[in-house]
Amino acid sequence: MPTWEANTPHKAHTISASQRRVLEVENLCAGYGPLQVLWDVSLHVASGEFVALMGPNGAGKTTVLRAIIGLVWPMSGTIHLHGESAVGLKTNRLTRQGVGFVAEDSSLFLGMSVHENLVLGAYGERDRRQIIRRLESVYELFPTLKARSKQLAGTLSGGEQKMLGIGRCFMAGPLLLLVDEPSLGLAPKLVDQVMTALKNLNRQGVAILLADQHVKRSLNLASRSYVLEQGRVALEGGSGDLLENDYVKKSYLGLL
C-alpha cells in the first residue's frame, strides 16, 4: 500500500478487504487423522473486532482455533492472517506474528511461578521496556495474579489459571486472540471477571475470536457471531440479528 494512501483517510475504502481483516478462513476442511471434523468452514475477523464462535459441544470450535494456530493441519482450504497465508506455518512462528491462543487447559507451565509464565509469554519480544509495560498491564487487568505472582501456576485455582493463560498470551502483544471456552468449569463470578478482562483487551484494540457454548453471553459480548454445528457454519451475522433469529431462539436460547 503506497504511503500517500495511508495518509489520506478518505481513501480508506480502497484498502483491500483482506488487509483490514486480521483473520480470513475460507473453506476450511480439517480433522484428526482420518476423522474429518470441519467441513467448508469460512469465517473472518476484522481488525479490533470481537467475534464469537458458538455451537454445541463437539461442533468443532476447538478444531477451528487449533487449525488457525497451527496445532491442527488443514486438509484443504485457506487461512490468511493479515492477508498472508498461515497454513503450514509452525505454531511458534504464528505466535510471533501476533496471534495468541488460550487453550481450554491453558497449557501453562505448571511448575513455574505466575511471574515466570508471564515473562515466558513475552519470549518473542525483544524490547525489555515493552515487556515491563505489558507485565504491568496484565497485573492491572488481573489483580489476583499480581498478588500471587510468586506462586506456582499449578497451585492456582481454575479461574486464576484461565486468567494467567489470557495474561500470558497478552504478553506477546497479539493483534488477534483466540480464546477457547474460557468459562468452562468456572464459578459465575470468575466467568464475569474473565469476560470483563476480554472486553477490556478488545477495547485496547486486540481482536478476539471467542469459542463459547454459552450463546446468550457470547452474543452480548461479541459484535458478530458464527454458529457452528457438526463442523459446518450453520448461521452467521451481527449479534443483534442473531438474538432475534428464530432458530437461535429455539435451539439455543430456550425461547419459543
Binding site: 496445532l71 509452525k90 511458534n92 505466535t95 497449557s107 501453562l108 507451565f109 505448571l110 515466558l120 519470549y123
Partner: peptide, 17 residues
C-alpha cells in the same frame, strides 16, 4: 527458561513462540 518450559509443556512452549 525456554529449555525448562519445553520440558514442562511442549504445546505451551510453542504457544509462547
Amino acid at each position: 527458561r525456554a529449555i525448562r518450559a519445553v520440558s514442562q509443556d511442549e504445546t505451551g512452549a510453542m504457544l509462547v513462540g
